[in-house]
Design a protein around this nucleic acid. Structure first.
Lengths: 103, 103
DNA sequence: TAGCTATATTCAAATATATATATATTACTG
DNA sequence: CAGTAATATATATATATTTGAATATAGCTA
């Protein structure tokens, strides 16, 4: 129990929940992890590494782009996705620090 | 991008995602916050504070109990819920530190 | 430029998961 | 045991995810 009685406002709870929900999916978490470790990658690289259908990969990537978690940059025939929001990486670092996942 | 190239295993990604998904919900986040600030509370106290339907409160609490995020202790007609896993609180503290929610 | 191939996105249907509404259980009190 | 308050569960409805097919977009080459 926390002595500090400050409360997250309803609005910010919604924001926090939105980010958490978005990364609270095994596929999306692995995508973020992959990009965090290896930098920008194409849809094909991502889908082959993780093992996804093309449509599924595209849809998850789109979802995260909509949420401003990822950026997309087209280079000819490829679209490179990368992490746009450092916050997400910091959250994941926190998770590791908090032992939420121990490798 | 992270120099550290260690990778979360598929299994732990699933675990981490499950926890994140669970707390990635405005209602559940507020419940955790409430319990963190005020200690164990009954279902009624929780649902009245946050403004939830009885069944909804019960379901959210059950879900978090299943995920070992909360504990439930029956005392007569009341069931007291409390935070069981300190990790979750630390994650939420991290979120605040990461500016995911700024009050 | 037309035709071809590779990459990525969109759409729609099927399936899975979550939330809301209705019903049941539990435990206390008279 | 009947009545009541507190909590839990079952079922219906809504939302999210997956999948396969169709569509778009870029680059290549005859």
């Amino acid at each position: 129990m926390n002595d500090d009685t400050t409360t997250i406002s309803v609005g910010t709870v919604q924001d926090a929940a939105r980010v958490l929900k978005c990364i609270g999916h095994p596929v999306r978490l692995r995508i973020i992890e992959l990009l965090d470790n290896g930098g920008a990658k194409t849809v094909t690289e991502i889908r082959e590494t993780i093992g996804l259908e093309q449509a599924s990969a595209s849809q998850h990537l789109n979802l995260m782009r909509d949420k401003r978690i990822l950026t997309a940059r087209r280079d000819g025939v490829h679209v490179y996705y990368d992490i746009s929001d450092d916050k997400v990486v910091r959250v994941i670092d926190c998770l590791r620090a908090c032992d939420i996942d121990t490798r």
